[in-house]
Amino acid sequence: MKEEKIRNSEETKVESKLKGNKKVNTKEWKKPTLEDVSEKVMAQPYIRFT
């Protein structure tokens, strides 16, 4: 199982080189985002227990 994983990984690397660093059959990349939504979804601690 482990050997198979390593082999697959090697194949992917080779594919990447052949396709100019682009791989096939992989997920589409989206820039990871981080957004602060605190005020929208969380009541303030002072007012919460009303």
Partner: peptide
């Protein structure tokens, strides 16, 4: 009490 969201990536 900070809440953040992130996408699939």
């Amino acid at each position: 009490e900070k809440v953040y969201v992130t996408n699939e990536t």
